[in-house]
Nucleic acid binder design. Structure first.
Lengths: 210, 210
DNA sequence: CGCCGCTAACTGACCGGTCAGTAAGCTCGG
DNA sequence: CCGAGCTTACTGACCGGTCAGTTAGCGGCG
């Protein structure tokens, strides 16, 4: 029953992972309140009651989605920091990783926390983790500014701009579209970093194919 | 009875403008489906039934909010194009105008069109206008690229990045916060334009007071 | 001036549909 | 033959929408 279990011997499979991915996609499309559990169940090819075998309730489903999304983001930052020391490259990789996660893994960021959707305790937990994520992001930017790789800026506002551009992606992205998640990630990350880079060092924007 | 009338001689005032502004704020906070008409009515200091005296139904309320938001955006573009010929400055002013509108006038962009919230006809209409807005925005960027003021880029993706950063603002902005709508507008517009500008021409990011 | 009739603006109670959540039973694989 | 993994069938609450009624002000008629 523990989280870590995907005992994969299911009759036709309803792993926690699949449930969360599908739920995230539906929540993103219809909005949390607009989506019914029947919608999620139908997308998974089961009935609503089956969902209740795996999750406690609708709110917990959203909660788990949020945790996964933030975990993807934090993991991206950690990897970026491990792979390079240059703040601009760190930021680029961190953003790209988050975007790839949102487009390919968990479809739909869901961090679109409407008020009153999560229970107070869950809200506090998610907010704390999300704040941690934002703080890390701002930290990278601040170091970039200190090293004069980035121009001085309002960390909070620029951070919100980055987050906004990325969190908006699930609203229009489709895996069937002309751009893959990776391509979107590259273009977005390059553009978002470029707006911060000190003059003269910023590379062009195009990524991959012309 | 026509739309253009706000013949305001109401007992205590429930103008179309006030209703839309408050509805936008509530919809933005709770999400369209998460917000009840009682919420909106309470915020206006009346009962739900009073709302129905002024609007046909909940969906129409959202529809009107969307129209106002897009109108603000399009008006911003028109003014920007009338005021200056330089694509980068045009873009900067257009974005700033939209942001100011979203923060000060209509509080909450609401263009966060979740699927199935608007009727097919209303959806078509809003989508058409929104597409028009996006097309105009891309047009400015395209001209900037042609004049080598902007670096070459994927117009569609960059457009989405701009829109995302801006549409996210209502999620965190508060008029009681440390930054006014105008300040947010200036910083965002400067940052978002800067990411496109050809090297060497981009100015710094800080705007207004430190 | 005064008060009569009208309407614009609003209230409170209510109905019906929808949806989160539950209960109880069926069905395989081991 | 047991129980994990599901189903069908249901309940209760909540919310969009309606409607009969109330209140406030305005315009006109005597």
């Amino acid at each position: 029953m523990r989280t870590g279990e995907q005992r994969a011997r299911p009759r036709q499979g309803l792993s926690r992972e699949r449930i969360l991915a599908e739920a995230a996609r539906i929540f993103n499309r219809l909005g949390y309140h607009g989506a019914t559990l029947d919608d999620v169940a139908r997308a998974l090819g089961v009935t609503k009651a089956a969902l209740y075998y795996h999750v406690a309730n609708k709110e917990e489903l959203l909660f788990q989605c949020c945790k996964v999304a933030i975990a993807i983001g934090l993991e991206g930052i950690r990897r970026a920091q491990a792979e390079t020391a240059a703040p601009d490259e760190q930021l680029r990789r961190a953003l790209a990783a988050y975007i790839e996660g949102m487009t390919d893994q968990l479809r739909g960021s869901v961090v679109i926390l409407e008020e009153g959707t999560l229970s107070p305790e869950h809200y506090r937990e998610v907010k704390a983790e999300r704040d941690e994520y934002e703080r890390e992001l701002r930290g990278i930017i601040a170091r970039g500014v200190a090293q004069e790789v980035f121009v001085p800026c309002d960390l909070r506002l620029v951070g919100f701009a980055l987050l906004g551009a990325m969190n908006w992606i699930p609203k229009w992205y489709s895996p069937a579209g002309s751009r893959s998640g990776r391509e979107v990630a590259e273009v977005f990350a390059a553009y978002l970093v470029r707006g911060l880079q000190a003059s003269g060092r910023a590379p062009a924007l195009t990524a991959g194919a012309p």
